[in-house]
Design a protein around this nucleic acid. Structure first.
Lengths: 256, 256
DNA sequence: GCAACACAGTGCGATAGCGAACCGAGGGCA
DNA sequence: TGCCCTCGGTTCGCTATCGCACTGTGTTGC
């Protein structure tokens, strides 16, 4: 069982009508996801479904030689494990936790039951599935055309939208693995952004100082994905972003 | 009204149970799509839904500077205009006819009605939507890692799977626009493949001579997309591929 | 039959990103 | 306190691809 307070911290759950929430919440549990945790390996059946609150999850395509590249980023606007209720059982990508935090977890069968009632949950999750497709398509185009610096800006902005503070706790190396580029490429671009005063890097932590500037330096892909997500999943009046997590506050005090 | 023979030439329509077909067919019309025809501009409402038989449609992301890149290819295994019944109304990509041919067209509202009956059509289209997501995600990874030659092989193989003959009627330039690379890049790679005897090019027409070799030279992305599509949309016993179109036979005689 | 055009093929310099190697500083841990 | 490991910064040569320009040859239309 899960308090309805926590459910409101995920935009999809918050958008569900009260009856649907009443049916789902008893089967939900609140879990904490560790950074780097593997929720699903590619082609593995999706048993649980995760609605992140302040955690962020990357969907990664892993190629034959082991190289990875992110095809979607999922935070409090979405859900991980859609194949569990869409009918496909599994998906060809890996789900790895990018940012530690909370999520509401529930067995796929329960979501499938709600899905099969053909109510608001079905409509909502179908629209979410379109938003995620848009993100994947835009990622494809971005990988084709834009510089590492532009992609880094896009990636940081997508992350910022899914958390309430402005610090990114990731090494250049792990960002590089998500963008599918070399670590040095990220270091170079981050260095330029730092000289411009947009961010400030320090050992596994990037502080975003000037979000506006990042938006300006990013390619159009960020705006396109953001626009489509907001169009398909309008913010609900009863949605409440997760409060700044305690461990983040502590971490900030430590670096201050 | 549409003959049930034609409906069997699209794998999704063929997979529908008889009752669903009986409801949909009276609203369907058989249309011929011209090469280069624009079915939908980005962000334009999807009024009609197209089930290609021997036509092939590209979904293209068009960036701010006008450059395009294909995010998905849809033929007799799929459907164009899913937003019309998924609830999103429109999508952020352009739908352009890559290969002329037939399609079954129907108003989105009729598919939506069938969708809302929550029967086999819903299940089937949800699985298709997953297959298309897999294609988009794989395109993203392919754009990141693989050479133009590998991508060209992947692209040709995806096209071949969606038609019954082995000739591709496209100029290097239009293929380049789909892959999001320079025309010269396609010419170079096609030249190499031609030297290897895998294909033979001549003014807007590529004859595939050795499909096996293309599969070998392609990156893993083709196999991954193919595998996922077959997994989610198993071939139906009552599906019948479209017969080789008359105009293609004529074209082959002309070049013979 | 000729002009105009579309398409494929080629060459050239520029460049973004790659692979590999190395270094120095920070920070955790014994 | 000292050691070791992680992280980020830097360098070097290399390659795929780009942008641009130009050529030659089918095709089409007048």
């Amino acid at each position: 069982m899960l308090s309805s307070i926590v459910a409101k911290q995920n935009r999809l759950l918050a958008a569900l009508p009260q009856e649907a929430q009443t049916r789902l919440l008893p089967h939900m549990e609140c879990v904490r996801l560790r950074a780097g945790q593997l929720l699903y390996e590619a082609a593995q059946p999706r048993r649980h479904v995760y609605f992140p609150t302040d955690a962020i999850v990357s969907l990664l395509n892993v190629s034959a030689n082991g190289a990875s590249s992110e095809v979607a980023m999922i935070g409090n606007e979405g859900v991980v494990g859609t194949a569990a209720f869409m009918g496909g059982i599994c998906s060809p990508w890996r789900a790895s936790v990018q940012r530690a935090g909370g999520a509401c977890r529930i067995l796929g069968t329960h979501v499938k039951d709600e899905f099969d009632r053909h109510g608001a949950a079905l409509q909502l999750l179908l629209r979410y599935s379109q938003a995620r497709s848009a993100q994947m398509a835009q990622t494809a185009a971005c990988n084709r055309y834009h510089s590492i610096e532009q992609q880094l800006c896009r990636w940081m902005l997508l992350s910022l939208d899914r958390q309430s503070d402005t610090d990114l706790s990731l090494t250049h190396e792990s960002i590089a693995n998500r963008l599918g580029v070399r670590r040095e490429g990220v270091t170079d671009s981050a260095g330029k952004l730092q000289k411009l005063g947009a961010i400030s890097c320090h050992r596994g932590r990037i502080a975003v100082l000037d979000r506006r500037r990042l938006e300006h330096l990013s390619c159009e892909c960020y705006a396109a994905v953001h626009r489509e997500t907001e169009r398909l999943l309008p913010r609900q009046p009863h949605y409440e972003p997760a409060p700044r997590a305690r461990w983040n506050v502590l971490a900030e005090l430590a670096t201050a």
